[in-house]
């Protein structure tokens, strides 16, 4: 039986950049026991001789001509920004201050 502990869910939430309450962590951990059991069934038939499919179309390297086409203006590109400064996205501190 597969399961995920509260601590494992907390680690995944950190990787996925989602703050989670204690209550959410515990309830997700319980749900995952059931969900993982259901999805683990894929292992029953996924033998080594079966090739994986990542995509329904067998496309590779789709190119287009390298010509200039109209694009968004800086104002349009910034129109949804939560904060902006000097025609740039203003973001919170990325590196620690030391």
């Amino acid at each position: 039986m597969s399961s995920l502990s509260r601590d494992e869910v907390a680690k995944l939430a950190g990787l996925a950049r989602i703050e989670m309450s204690e209550e959410e962590l515990v309830s997700l951990s319980k749900e995952f026991t059931v969900i993982l059991d259901a999805v683990a069934r894929v292992q029953e038939v996924a033998s080594a001789d079966v090739a994986p499919t990542s995509h329904p179309l067998s496309l590779r390297n789709v190119f287009r001509p390298d010509v200039v086409v109209p694009s968004l203006s800086p104002e349009q590109a910034l129109s949804g920004a939560p904060a902006q400064e000097e025609q740039r996205f203003r973001v919170p501190q990325i590196l620690g201050e030391e």
């Binding site: 996925a16 995952f32 969900i35 079966v50 994986p52």
Partner: peptide, 25 residues
Amino acid sequence: IILGTYALSSGYYDAYYGSAQKVRT
């Protein structure tokens, strides 16, 4: 998102996401 993060994480990738891709075939 958490389920997907788990299925793609190192150590579980082949057992979950990789197997699912084979089922897709």
